[in-house]
Design a protein around this nucleic acid. Structure first.
Length: 678
DNA sequence: TTTAGGG
DNA sequence: CCCTAAA
């Protein structure tokens, strides 16, 4: 279609590659212009906050003026958002991984035990810790644009809400903790004027409404079955630890307490959001036009959900408010993490220490505890939170709360229905699954802060136009009976028909897979074709069926083969987790530092050379530049692709290595925000 | 050895 | 992924 070079850069509001391909020496000379834009970024956040406020006010027929809100926000911001001085040195995010720990995926048996987590009831009303935040942004007077309501779905176990009372701009996916970057107006502001609640709506369940947030609940906002769901997967894919570290490194903000921390450092890209991006919009529309309409039905677990939901969203938006759309998307479309209760996984580990590593709840999603008890030297992982794909739910203001709930349930069910893989990232690194925990250092690590478990939905974007090839995700072994299934069939307790049975954990055969597929048995799951629908057990299955190649099947000789006169290495497609790790690293380190990137995120992934990473990045950029229909292989969550583009664009402008100089500021995570809804 | 790019 | 020129 379009030449990647043309399309790639200027994409999504990012300025085109400022740096034309030229001799390195020249290219490296681009000066940083980051600081300059920072203020703009903040301004944007303020704007968003104000918008939210406005909407909120309008909803409650309260009146106020932007200026007021602005000033309030501003003041509060000043007070609350003390930023650490920028220090380029700090930018070096090297400390990210001092220790090296291998990472391996293991089957969270837990899920089995705690299957509620995967039920449609995963969003039980009883869980008062689950909150759906609705950020209603309404830019009116000043911008004449009305932003759609964006619901941030976030079931969080924490009570951080009372702290970061307003307008969260970003949130991490780690459930247990809210590693959110948000524009914090500060509780002070809230107290000052209730009306200033920046459209933060919490309404998980009535019971939840008890806390501070309760007062901000605006039930009027939602009321209409019409809704759409979007799954910008992995938007906040950074592992907690990573995120945290990075921020620390980048001194983006003080992060003593995740709950209270805030960030206002949007990358330069942030500044662009305010401008409409017709092209993108068009692109989206086109995409959505081709996608199917998705309904919240029992079948919503189809893999196509991804595309459909997105398409629907787009469609909806188009119809509803194509106008201010662009803006809106960039607004604090924050969403949150899906949380679940914690459970623990016991893993064999030769270790009998009594040491208990309890991860600060906020810091990590898991805690490791050395089991001193029985002779059974185990390491107990108490996973308090999972990083889950972001879930965007777009519903009209007129939607009912009930419909919202349904939508959420459907969305969750859809995600689960597609199967879920678990990725493990330790200290930001993805490693061989073969490594033992001990080898990986996970068990010994006193500071398991960086241990993150990521749920990776496997449903993929099925392009309607695409020929029905292989199911986005399949379980080759699906048809096999799953004998030792610890899971017992559960009743489908889905809200609105949508339901998910207990998840099925599948081990992926992928060479470097570091995740396991968790495939819920879905009666209506066409893709799985009922094969595994009823079976519940642990079965090995390729994480990326499409990529499974003959060679991969014989990993035994893998290493030896190499010895033979430059035998072409066996192809080992990057898993989503790996891609994410790569993206993360590049975002922080920039391109051109593949060696560092390798060490940072793939140090123990012996089979990934920096050249591989570089190549992968190259292909990622390309992939992100082409239409989804042209993509092949395991689909990469578009969210990641967005990040790829962002980072690519960003680093095109900010050379990561200025002739031996310190690197430019890492691409701020928040910059991704901008492209979110696009 | 790393980078950067073309193959 | 491979191959290599350059750095």
């Amino acid at each position: 279609m379009v030449s990647k070079k043309r399309l790639g850069y200027g994409f999504r509001g990012y300025r085109g590659p400022v740096i034309p391909r030229a001799p390195r020496s020249i290219r490296k000379r681009v000066p940083h212009k980051k600081l300059v834009e920072e203020s703009q970024l903040c301004a944007f956040e303020l704007l968003a906050a104000v918008a939210g406020k406005l909407l909120f006010e309008s909803e409650s027929s309260a009146s106020s003026n932007v200026a007021e809100a602005k000033s309030q926000l501003g003041s509060s911001r000043d007070r609350n958002e003390k930023r650490q001085p920028r220090d380029d040195k700090a930018l070096k995010s090297e400390r990210l991984d001092h220790g090296s720990c291998a990472e391996s995926a293991f089957v969270p048996k837990v899920c089995v035990e705690d299957r509620n987590l995967f039920n449609c009831k995963g969003i039980p009303q009883a869980e008062n810790d689950q909150v759906v935040e609705l950020t209603a942004v309404h830019v009116s007077s000043d911008f004449q644009q009305k932003l759609d309501c964006v619901i941030k779905l976030g079931i969080s176990v924490e009570k951080s809400l009372d702290e970061n009372a307003t307008c969260k701009i970003e949130s991490s996916n780690f459930i247990g903790e809210s590693l959110n970057s948000k524009v914090e107006s500060g509780s002070e502001v809230q107290s000052q004027d209730d009306k200033n609640q920046i459209g933060l709506l919490s309404m998980a369940n009535t019971s939840t409404v008890n806390d501070p947030i309760g007062e901000y609940v605006n039930t009027n906002v939602l009321s209409d079955p019409e809704s759409s769901v979007k799954f910008p997967l992995y938007r906040d894919s950074k592992p907690d630890a990573l995120l945290k570290k990075r921020y620390n490194n980048v001194k983006l903000g003080t992060r003593d307490d995740d709950e209270n921390s805030f960030r206002c450092n949007k990358s330069s890209t942030k500044s662009r959001p305010l401008r409409p991006q017709p092209r993108i919009l068009r692109h989206r529309m086109r995409k959505m036009m081709t996608s199917k309409y998705w309904r919240a039905t029992p079948k919503l677990m189809d893999y196509e959900l991804y595309s459909t939901s997105e398409g629907m969203k787009t469609f909806y938006r188009y119809r509803k408010s194509m106008h201010a759309r662009e803006r809106c998307e960039q607004a604090p479309l924050k969403k949150r993490k899906l949380s679940d209760r914690s459970f623990s996984v016991a893993i064999d580990q030769e270790q009998s220490s009594d040491s208990i590593f309890n991860l600060p709840e906020k810091a990590s999603g898991a805690s490791i505890k050395g089991h001193a008890k029985a002779k059974d030297p185990n390491v107990t992982f108490s996973i308090k939170s999972f990083k889950v794909p972001e879930l965007y739910i777009d519903v009209p203001e007129t939607a009912t709360v009930g419909s919202l709930k349904r939508t959420v349930v459907d969305a969750v069910a859809a995600i689960l229905g597609g199967g879920i893989r678990v990725g493990v990232i330790y200290q930001g690194k993805v490693r061989d699954d073969q490594r033992t925990l001990q080898q990986a250092g996970i068990s010994q690590c006193a500071n398991p802060d960086n241990l993150g478990f990521i749920l990776e939905p496997t449903f993929t974007h099925v392009s309607p136009s695409e020929t029905p090839k292989k199911p986005p995700m399949l379980f080759p072994c699906a048809d096999r009976p799953l004998p030792r299934s610890p899971i017992s069939p559960t009743t489908r307790s889905g809200v609105s028909n949508a339901s998910v049975d207990p998840p099925l954990v599948t081990k992926s055969d992928n060479v470097d897979n570091n995740e396991y597929i968790l495939s819920p048995t879905t009666p209506d799951n066409k893709l799985t074709d009922g094969a595994i629908l009823d079976s519940k057990a642990l079965i090995p299955a390729p994480a990326h069926p499409m990529n499974v190649e003959p060679l991969a099947a014989i990993p035994a000789n893998f290493k030896h083969k190499r010895s033979e006169m430059s035998q072409r290495r066996t192809r080992r497609p990057f898993s989503v987790t790996e891609v994410e790790a790569l993206v993360e690293a590049v975002e922080t380190l920039g391109t051109g530092r593949w060696r560092d990137i390798k060490m940072r995120a793939f140090e123990d992934a012996d089979h990934r050379t920096y050249v591989d990473l570089k190549d992968k990045w190259k292909t990622l950029v390309h992939t992100a530049s082409i239409s989804p229909q042209q993509r092949r292989g395991e689909p990469v969550p578009h969210e990641l692709l967005d990040r790829v583009l962002s980072a690519h664009s960003y680093w095109s402008q900010h050379q990561s290595r200025q002739h031996g100089k310190h690197p430019a500021d890492p691409l701020n995570v928040d910059s991704r925000e901008v492209i979110l809804g696009a």
